[in-house]
Amino acid sequence: MAVKEIVLAAVTALFGNYDVDAARELLAPDYIQHNPAVPTGAEAILGFVPALQEMGLTGVPHRVLAEGDLVVLHSTYENAQAFGAEKLVAFDVFRVENGKVAEHWDNLQPLVPASETASGRSMVDGPTEIVDQEKTAENKALVEGFVDAVLLGKAPETITDYISTETYHQHNPHVADGLEGLGAAFAAFAEQGLQVKYDQVHLVVAEGNFVFTAAEGKFGDQPTAFFDLFRVDAGKIVEHWDVVSEIPTEFAHDNGKF
């Protein structure tokens, strides 16, 4: 199976069919876990399955992209109280090795209804189709340049080299559409003493018109993980989704967030 098929089969077994035996066949025994609340190893996550079934947790993937051995799912979860809220939006990143899921990173955030977001867009709606496969490397380089220049603060004045000045659809619930919305949100954060600071990028996964990044930094004084997804069209970033989560001080393992 292709890496996407392996990951989707594993996720379906865990969160759709609650099939421990099927999931065990798809997970490496030494499965490396980065979710702060879940111990590492395949048997640890398999041990949660009966409780997940009892609470009725379900997951719906909206976007799936892959590069090399990494697969990114952009999903919503319902009946997810055990992970912090009834409804969550998530980015899950899986690494596949030798036909099995070998490592997992994620970021989870309570789902804000579209009626309550700054843009009127939901946290997961918008295009899902992967196109422009031949532009994967070009689009990845564009987003990496944006992250380095703007998010890491090396040349923020070059933002219009990367983000479209005509179309920029925003799915962060606190940010309105367009560069004006982005600027207004950052100004509002600054007024509250909440600087958004990216310090290091750990993962970049690109396929066609979609590029995903996982980074750590701070939101105010709180160590924070920033998982971002960008859609690129005609050489510019035109859409953005994200999931932002605090990095806790205590973990159920020694693997860290990244």
Rank of each mutant, 00 (worst) to 15 (best):
F91T: 06
F91N: 06
F91M: 06
D92Q: 09
D92A: 06
D92Y: 13
V93L: 07
R95C: 02
R95Y: 10
V96W: 13
V96N: 09
N98M: 07
N98Y: 15
G99V: 10
G99Q: 08
K100F: 10
K100I: 11
A102K: 02
A102H: 02
A102T: 04
A102P: 04
E103N: 10
E103I: 09
D106Y: 07
N107D: 10
N107S: 13
L111G: 06
V112W: 06
P113F: 07
P113A: 08
A114D: 08
S115E: 14
S115N: 09
T117A: 12
S122W: 01
S122Q: 04
V124D: 03
V124S: 04
G126S: 02
P127W: 03
P127Y: 01
T128C: 09
T128H: 13
I130S: 05
I130T: 11
V131H: 02
D132M: 02
Q133F: 15
K135L: 08
K135S: 08
K135I: 08
K135G: 07
A137N: 07
A137M: 14
E138N: 01
E138V: 00
E138C: 00
N139D: 03
K140I: 03
A141S: 12
L142T: 01
V143L: 00
E144D: 12
E144G: 02
E144F: 03
F146W: 01
V147Q: 00
D148L: 14
D148T: 15
A149S: 08
A149G: 14
L151C: 06
G153D: 01
K154G: 05
A155C: 09
A155Y: 11
A155N: 15
P156T: 02
E157M: 01
T158Y: 05
I159V: 08
I159P: 10
I163Q: 01
I163F: 00
T167S: 05
T167M: 10
H169F: 14
H169G: 08
H169C: 12
H169P: 08
Q170A: 01
N172R: 01
P173K: 05
V175P: 05
V175A: 10
A176T: 03
G178E: 00
L179K: 05
L179W: 01
L179N: 04
G181L: 00
L182I: 04
L182W: 10
G183L: 11
G183A: 12
G183E: 04
A184P: 13
A185G: 12
A185L: 12
A187S: 11
A188Y: 11
F189H: 14
A190N: 13
E191G: 15
E191V: 04
Q192C: 13
Q192P: 14
G193M: 03
G193R: 06
L194C: 13
Q195W: 13
V196P: 09
V196N: 11
V196S: 14
K197E: 14
Y198F: 13
Y198D: 04
Y198P: 12
Q200R: 14
V201E: 14
V201Q: 11
H202N: 09
L203I: 15
L203P: 08
L203C: 14
V204W: 06
V205I: 10
E207T: 10
E207R: 04
E207S: 09
N209G: 03
V211S: 03
V211H: 00
V211E: 01
